[in-house]
């Protein structure tokens, strides 16, 4: 799809014109094609201020152009802090954090899940929560006069099973099943 020239200037010869439609079909990705590259999102982005890898305007342009693999395999899509500052300000109602979620969802389906998010998803499947409530935790709660909380929540794993998330989590990185 692309070769890399000297000095890291990407030269793109093949684009996937369907990618923008694919993203637009994801929940939250609907308005991506309205983007007119004004840069309001990047101008107010605290992550972009600290890390040039993350530039929401550029990511959206890459999607519109159809640089599918480059976007989905990039770790930059996982850098959105979902602060919604751009979401509030975007003059075209692109809803950038939701677009990033849409991209991350597609990336997961392609086997590109970020390890931190995989770990979170697995913890939640196991305990129903990000943090395990063990006996020690409940003892402490009782000491403080707070109610006990049941350990685990099997229905969460059931939901994973229904939606197929377990299958997705078992995919190899960057590959198919």
């Amino acid at each position: 799809m692309e070769s890399v020239r000297k000095k890291d200037v990407p030269v793109v010869t093949v684009l996937d014109p369907k990618f923008k439609y694919e993203v637009a079909r994801e929940p939250g990705g609907e308005n991506i094609k309205y983007c007119f590259q004004c840069g309001t999102c990047t101008s107010g982005c605290k992550v972009a201020e600290l890390d040039s890898k993350y530039n929401p305007r550029k990511i959206i342009k890459m999607v519109i152009l159809g640089m599918r693999e480059r976007v989905l395999s990039g770790d930059f899509i996982w850098l959105c802090a979902t602060c919604y500052t751009c979401h509030e300000r975007c003059p075209q109602d692109v809803r950038i954090p939701e677009v990033m979620n849409a991209l991350k969802n597609i990336a997961v389906r392609e086997g590109y899940i970020h390890p931190a998010f995989r770990a979170q998803a697995e913890l939640i499947a196991g305990h129903g929560r990000l943090y395990e409530i063990d006996e020690l935790a409940n003892e402490k709660r009782t000491d403080w006069g707070l109610t006990e909380i049941p350990q685990g929540c099997p229905e969460v794993a059931e939901i994973y099973g229904i939606t197929g998330l377990f299958d997705l989590l078992s995919r190899e990185v960057g590959g198919k099943t």
């Binding site: 200037v9 990407p10 030269v11 793109v12 684009l15 550029k58 342009k61 152009l65 640089m67």
Partner: peptide
């Protein structure tokens, strides 16, 4: 040159 993405497009 696509000024938005910084890529050279050869289409």
């Amino acid at each position: 040159e696509d000024l938005d993405s910084g890529c050279i497009l050869d289409l």
